[in-house]
Design a protein around this nucleic acid. Structure first.
Lengths: 140, 140
DNA sequence: GTTAGTGCAAACTCTTTGCAGCACT
DNA sequence: AGTGCTGCAAAGAGTTTGCACTAAC
């Protein structure tokens, strides 16, 4: 019986609880497909249910959605301060960065353009330490 | 007869010239579908050709591709310093911002994490001046 | 008992691909 | 002439939707 769901006036179903649990546990942004696979280890659940649940939770502001360079949508709990990640273009590992550079910038942009910023999405692509090492060794 | 194409060892076809022209003229990041529509006003061209040309130009580093919140890929000429845009969630207008906050940050991230940054993508979502005005007037 | 949530299959959108024919150098 | 480019149609991936059934309140 999840407080989050109750507070949002949503029915407390097994599917929703497990989906929320999976997203919380992962902590990094996660895709619908992966949520589906992880949730399916615990209960029988349909992929459409995952998508529909994600849409609902997004609408209620419980989740945050970000579309990445691979054109896939990634979700995370929005109460966990939003995280940006470094994506390695070789091994596809994800490393979170601690503070978000955008917060400092929002005021400046608002002053310059009058634009009222609601959200932003930042994706950083490069090569992680491990893969840099591997590249070095391969070139020897 | 486009210098850009020659320099990249690509054949100089009508389709490619027009596609490049369209992207240059737009200056803001633009979608394949829109390039197709604009190019089609000048010559008969197929949507696959647009996609294939974009893929080729991307590979050669002539273009830059960014996937936005709408899950669509947007392209821009990469010699024009890369631009970030403010997207209005109401009218979907796009406003470019002048300088990119990320450049200042790359060194710090590299020092903190060892990650070698190759690229990044930043999308800012909110409400533009005009739509803020409209909202005010509607509430009167 | 009602309404909201779910499963299933089919549809939808953007993008990619195989193949045959055409155009650039 | 030869290779690279294009058009067409069909496939692909991720996501959404309509409908009938089921479960939560």
């Amino acid at each position: 019986m999840s407080k989050i769901l109750n507070d949002a006036n949503l029915k407390n179903t097994k599917a929703r609880e497990i989906i929320l649990e999976v997203i919380k546990k992962t902590s990094l942004p996660i895709r619908a497909e992966d949520i589906y696979k992880l949730a399916n280890k615990k209960i029988a659940i349909n992929l459409s249910t995952v998508y529909r649940t994600l849409a609902t939770l997004l609408e209620k502001g419980i989740l945050t959605r970000q579309v990445m360079h691979d054109k896939k949508a990634y979700y995370q709990i929005s109460t966990l301060a939003h995280k940006h990640i470094l994506v390695c273009e070789i091994c596809h590992s994800q490393t979170p960065i601690e503070d978000c550079p955008m917060h400092h910038l929002e005021d400046k942009i608002k002053a310059d353009t009058g634009f009222d910023i609601k959200d932003h999405s930042l994706e950083i692509i490069g090569i992680c330490c491990k893969c840099q090492e591997k590249l070095k060794n391969n070139n020897k």
